[in-house]
């Protein structure tokens, strides 16, 4: 067990009129190598939850174990090497004068030679599809999507054990989104890095995650494989979510054509193509 959350609760601004219980008795486990998708409507507590994983927030109640060690009181610095964290607004994460310096920032303590540092920075920049010719630019001169790529590069350059991505694809074009998420898949495959993805894109979660945690009003509403979670479209809609477009299509088809045994656990374009080609007997080029 890599990460275990036990009865975690957290309240903002306790004792003020703005008191807000953002997490309420949350428990779950994450295995090494999992690709976890966390979904839930705006304000349901996703960012609050993941900020407990890197020590930015400390539990009011409950415990968090990383590698069976309680990290309730560990600070961000101690966790920085194990938990890489990309914030929802990564602009807040950028503060050096140039993009290069920003990506290299976390490497300062690693005592690398100039060449090694350069190599790591370029590798990270390439991984997120950041245009290398912009490395010496000021971060203020970047477009929104370019800033986001730079921020993500600055985190993955550290080779963390767990990579937490809080809506990393917001503001990225489709290519950039695929690049980042495919890269996460690669990190997971090649280095066994565990990925925790907070996302509003049901498509991305369906495509990439092996485990989905659905949050609602500070509580865990559902937890399971994408197949299990996205089957219950009505329940998801009720709590502000949806299902991938393909899932809606297949649900409609399965209702209209019960005779074809249409698979209701299909929610990616690739699976849908394969299924329909088999059914319709295409040329299968």
């Amino acid at each position: 067990m890599l990460l275990r959350i036990e009865h975690l609760s957290y309240t903002y601004m306790k004792g003020t009129p703005f008191e807000k219980k953002a997490l309420d008795d949350v428990s779950f486990e994450i295995d090494k190598g999992d690709f976890v998708g966390i979904i839930g409507h705006t304000g349901c507590g996703k960012s609050t939850l993941v900020q407990h994983f890197n020590g930015l927030l400390k539990p009011d109640e409950g415990n968090i174990f990383l590698n069976e060690q309680c990290i309730n009181n560990s600070n961000i610095k101690a966790l920085r090497k194990s938990v890489g964290f990309v914030f929802q607004y990564p602009e807040h994460q950028l503060f050096e004068s140039t993009v290069y310096k920003d990506i290299a920032f976390g490497l300062k303590n690693e005592k690398l030679s100039k060449e090694e540092e350069q190599q790591r920075v370029i590798q990270a920049a390439n991984a997120v599809g950041f245009d290398l010719s912009l490395l010496e630019n000021s971060i203020y001169d970047l477009s929104g999507g370019q800033k986001r790529r730079a921020a993500i590069a600055g985190v993955i350059v550290m080779n963390p054990q767990i990579l937490v991505l809080d809506e990393p694809a917001a503001g990225l074009d489709p290519l950039g989104r695929d690049e980042i998420l495919d890269f996460a898949v690669k990190l997971r495959k090649e280095y066994g890095i565990t990925i925790i993805l907070v996302s509003h894109s049901m498509e991305d979660v369906a495509k990439y995650a092996n485990k989905v945690i659905v949050m609602n009003e500070g509580k865990v509403e559902m937890i399971g494989s994408p197949g299990k979670v996205f089957e219950d479209e009505d329940r998801l809609r009720k709590i502000g979510l949806g299902v991938p477009q393909i899932a809606t299509l297949f649900k409609k088809l399965s209702v209209a054509y019960p005779q074809y045994n249409i698979d209701r656990e299909i929610f990616t374009v690739e699976e849908a193509t394969r299924f329909l080609l088999r059914l319709l007997g295409g040329e299968n080029k």
């Binding site: 839930g40 705006t42 502000g240």
Partner: peptide, 10 residues
């Protein structure tokens, strides 16, 4: 990109 951070229903 004013809706980039909203949930599907939102």
């Amino acid at each position: 990109e004013a809706t980039a951070m909203l949930d599907p229903v939102g």
